Amino acid sequence: MRFTFIKLPQHRKFSPEPIYYDSAKEERLERERNIRIELGLKPLDEEEAGKFKDRVKGKMGRRIKGHFEVARSARKKSNIRLIIILMALMALFYYLLHAGYDWYSQFL
Rank of each mutant, 00 (worst) to 15 (best):
M1P: 05
F3Q: 02
I6L: 06
K7S: 06
K7P: 00
L8V: 05
Q10N: 03
Q10P: 01
R12P: 02
K13R: 08
K13A: 02
E17Q: 13
P18Q: 04
I19P: 02
I19K: 15
Y20P: 01
Y20T: 13
D22S: 14
A24P: 01
K25W: 08
E27H: 14
R28G: 01
L29T: 01
E30R: 15
R31I: 15
E32M: 06
E32H: 01
N34S: 07
I35F: 09
I35G: 00
I35K: 08
I37H: 10
I37D: 04
E38H: 01
L39Y: 05
L39E: 10
G40S: 03
K42D: 12
P43R: 06
A49D: 07
G50D: 15
G50S: 11
F52P: 00
D54S: 08
R55V: 05
R55F: 09
G58Q: 05
G58Y: 05
G58K: 11
K59V: 07
G61K: 13
I64K: 11
H67M: 13
H67Y: 11
H67I: 14
E69T: 13
S73E: 15
S73Q: 15
K76S: 12
K76T: 12
K76H: 10
S78H: 15
I80A: 14
I80Y: 05
R81G: 09
L82W: 06
I84D: 14
I85T: 11
I85W: 09
M90R: 03
L92F: 07
F93R: 03
Y94W: 09
Y94M: 14
L96N: 09
L96W: 05
H98N: 10
H98F: 15
A99I: 05
Y101D: 09
Y101L: 15
D102C: 00
D102S: 03
Y104A: 13
S105H: 15
L108I: 14
